[in-house]
């Protein structure tokens, strides 16, 4: 009962924060510097880890597919398998997971620290809403940066698959054949589909992590607890949302 209450409270708080942030959308043009800073944090600094992970997801997909398909001569379909699963599912999903781990945790830590050290209170007395200058730029930045991360994740993952397809002995498919199969079965629609998914994930991760950070109570010890909670809740939400968003977008 207590847990249900806590969940409902959390949902209510997140929804409230969402609407409060959105009500300041008009102030976004004047928050250019903050927006750029958040873009830098969310996009630019997250790129390396996203690229590395995507590359290896691509290779593993190709490896598994090649192994499973070698027996019935369907190796030519590796390209399409890697292409589709990367674009529709694994690209968005893994990028969102990395976002939760890398950006979500940082956001929660920063806002929780601001809360604990009364910086948020100082903003309140100054009548500068945290939703306006702390949450809104982050939400805008994640919406702009997520497609960029996703397209890079896709391309790097596809490339990783092609490397395995070419050099692993039991797969042994030329990059031309690999990419031909990929192109034949993966449509831009699929990439768009993945991006829409990623936008939902990224937006929710940032919003939830902001909310958990801003609702931190107590001393510095609570900052760590808030970060853990932010990441765990984000990961659960990504997995749950994945099912529903996939269903809606299918």
């Amino acid at each position: 009962m207590k847990q249900i209450n806590a969940i409902l409270e959390g949902v209510g708080s997140v929804v409230q924060l969402l609407f409060r942030s959105l009500s300041y959308t008009g102030s976004l043009p004047r928050q250019g510097a903050r927006f750029i800073e958040q873009c830098y944090m969310i996009g630019y600094t997250t790129l390396p880890i996203v690229a590395i992970l995507s590359f290896f997801i691509g290779t593993v997909l190709a490896l598994e597919a090649g192994y499973a398909m070698q027996d019935f001569g369907a190796k030519e379909f590796i390209g399409s398998l890697v292409g589709l699963s990367m674009a529709r599912e694994l690209g968005p999903m893994m990028t969102a997971v990395l976002l939760a781990g890398r950006v979500g945790s940082a956001i929660t830590a920063e806002l929780a620290s601001m809360k604990v050290y009364q910086e948020i209170d100082a903003l309140t007395t100054m009548n500068i809403p945290a939703a306006k200058i702390l949450v809104l730029p982050r939400l805008a930045a994640v919406l702009v940066m997520m497609p960029v991360l996703i397209v890079i994740a896709n391309i790097v993952g596809w490339f990783g698959g092609s490397v395995v397809a070419r050099y692993v002995s039991y797969v042994g498919i030329s990059p031309q054949a690999y990419f031909a199969a990929l192109r034949h079965y993966t449509k831009f629609k699929d990439v768009m589909n993945g991006m829409e998914k990623a936008e939902v994930f990224g937006f929710v991760v940032v919003l939830v992590c902001c909310d958990i950070g801003l609702n931190t109570r107590g001393g510095p010890r609570e900052i760590g607890a808030a970060v853990t909670r932010g990441v765990v809740v984000s990961l659960i939400l990504i997995l749950v949302l994945d099912y529903f968003v996939t269903k809606i977008l299918l």
Binding site: D121, T125, M126, I128
Partner: peptide, 27 residues
């Protein structure tokens, strides 16, 4: 209304100048 916090509550991510300039800029 202004409150001078016991521990200062300065914005740690902003320089002293930006700490002071935040209010007039935002308003």
């Amino acid at each position: 209304l202004a409150l001078v916090f016991q521990a200062g509550a300065l914005f740690n991510s902003l320089s002293v100048y930006d700490n002071l300039a935040l209010y007039p800029r935002e308003h």
